[in-house]
Design a protein around this nucleic acid. Sequence first.
RNA 1: CGAGUCGACCGGGCGGCCGCGUCAGGGUCACGGCCCUGCCGAGGAACGUCCGGGCUCCACAGGGCAGGGUGGUUGUUAACGGCAACCCGGGGUGACCCGCGGGAAAGUGCCACAGAAAACAGACCGCCGCGCCGACGGCGCGGUAAGGGUGAAACGGCGGGGUAAGAGCCCACCAGCAUCCCGGGUGACCGGGAUGGCUCGGUAAACCCCACCUGGAGCAAGGCCAAGAGGGCUGUCGCCGCAAGGCGGUGGCCUGCGCAGGCGGUUGAGGGUUGCCCGCCCGAUGCCUGCGGGUAGGCCGCUAGAGCCUGCCGGCGACGGCAGGCCGAGAUGGAUGGCCGCCGCCUCCCGCGAGGGAGGUACAGGACCCGGCGUACAGGUCGACUCGUCCG
RNA 2: GGGCCGCUAGCUCAACUGGCAGAGCAGGAGACUUUUAAUCUCCGGGUUCAGGGUUCGAGUCCCUGGCGGCCCA
Length: 120
Amino acid sequence: MLATAQRLRRRGEFAAAVRGGRRAARGVLVVHVKFPDPENSGRPARAGFVVPRTIGGAVVRNQVKRRLRQLVRERLGQLPTGTDVVVRALPAAARRGYRGLAADLDAALEAARRGKPAPR
RNA sequence: CGAGUCGACCGGGCGGCCGCGUCAGGGUCACGGCCCUGCCGAGGAACGUCCGGGCUCCACAGGGCAGGGUGGUUGUUAACGGCAACCCGGGGUGACCCGCGGGAAAGUGCCACAGAAAACAGACCGCCGCGCCGACGGCGCGGUAAGGGUGAAACGGCGGGGUAAGAGCCCACCAGCAUCCCGGGUGACCGGGAUGGCUCGGUAAACCCCACCUGGAGCAAGGCCAAGAGGGCUGUCGCCGCAAGGCGGUGGCCUGCGCAGGCGGUUGAGGGUUGCCCGCCCGAUGCCUGCGGGUAGGCCGCUAGAGCCUGCCGGCGACGGCAGGCCGAGAUGGAUGGCCGCCGCCUCCCGCGAGGGAGGUACAGGACCCGGCGUACAGGUCGACUCGUCCG
RNA sequence: GGGCCGCUAGCUCAACUGGCAGAGCAGGAGACUUUUAAUCUCCGGGUUCAGGGUUCGAGUCCCUGGCGGCCCA
């Protein structure tokens, strides 16, 4: 999974990442990526997750969140240190399998890295 | 063998690799942390939040009113609106099941339609008597409530006597009511007897009456530390912007601090008694108003408890007592995951068969803790009992 | 954690104290019109969220559950 130091834990951190980052949507996921300011480059890259209640009950939301944490953990090393990522799940994510989530995440991260605007 | 009733319980198992959270030990350190090892790490409902308690803070001389809750009895318990046993009523051939199950002869209200009449007596058709007209029919007065039809419900039922016709008007039996007595039971109540008037509608999950219970808030409770002199939320208007939003003006609310002004010294500003009144109490570093303008972070609370398991004893039972043993989550954008192998279980398909293949494996996750209730749930296990059929 | 609402025709809503579930729009048919629109007439359509209870009788009262929404901390 993902260690505590590698997760966003404050409302302010989420707001900064969503507002100051690039947005890219692919499949059932929306990612916001905020590349590091020079003073932040010392700490590790961090990630946070937004799984709204429209997805399902607590069990379903936890399952989606755990799968996303596992997926992000495998990819966080590829990002520059100090980067903040917020992954937001759409309601269809509950029925998307693990591999489907992986494909969507890779595509969305790649789109955000290229800096292209997300197609709507 | 078939059909069924009740109760108790399980909620996949083993293994590999990569990971997560708390704690403990060790190591390292630039004292922020990092690394290694080990222990532990979601449920029977953790859920819904329908009740009850523990815990914490606030309040509390006392009395009255109001409000809320409960509603057969006796127990059980920390407590309960839960549970157990029993009573009563209803259902079932039965095992068993269901019941907000006090009071309608305290009072008020309501009882649509139909029907003559719907709660207190009265009388539409009818029956009977008398009188009148007079074409065996009608009109008027009186008696009556057996019969008719309506309705969910029509002023006890049946038989006999009685009568002009009838009627508890009288009598016997039955049902029911009230009072009293005897017996049984802690009690709800049950069994029996005597007397009485002959009879009384339903609805309290309508108001109400009676009995009993009932302070308020909730771990965002509450406490400590740090930081700073403000902040948070919001209405509206203008400008910028595609938008999200940003900036500014002007109001409102909440709260800590600073400043200013005012009020106030027992003849007392103001406050408490968290619905109101009487009454009582507190009260001077206090209270009110205006202006200015912060934080929202950490730690404790925080998990050993009405705890769990086993055995014995008491009790019909809920439950209680004793002894021994055990430690079983404490997160805070919130820890149990990802990938894979084998075996279970269920369904379907292929096959004569051994077997093979495909799919599925529920309901659902702590957030202070506990006792209940209610609800969801793939599949399965055990025990006790009932009815029917057949055999002995 | 605490508190409060709603669920009725395809849609938006009524139904006073319990007494035959009803409007507007929408839909269908017809009339008027050269046709359409508008207008007029007629018609169909409901397990009143579900289950249970009280009552002679429940959309209404009571209990349990489901779904949706709102407020406060």
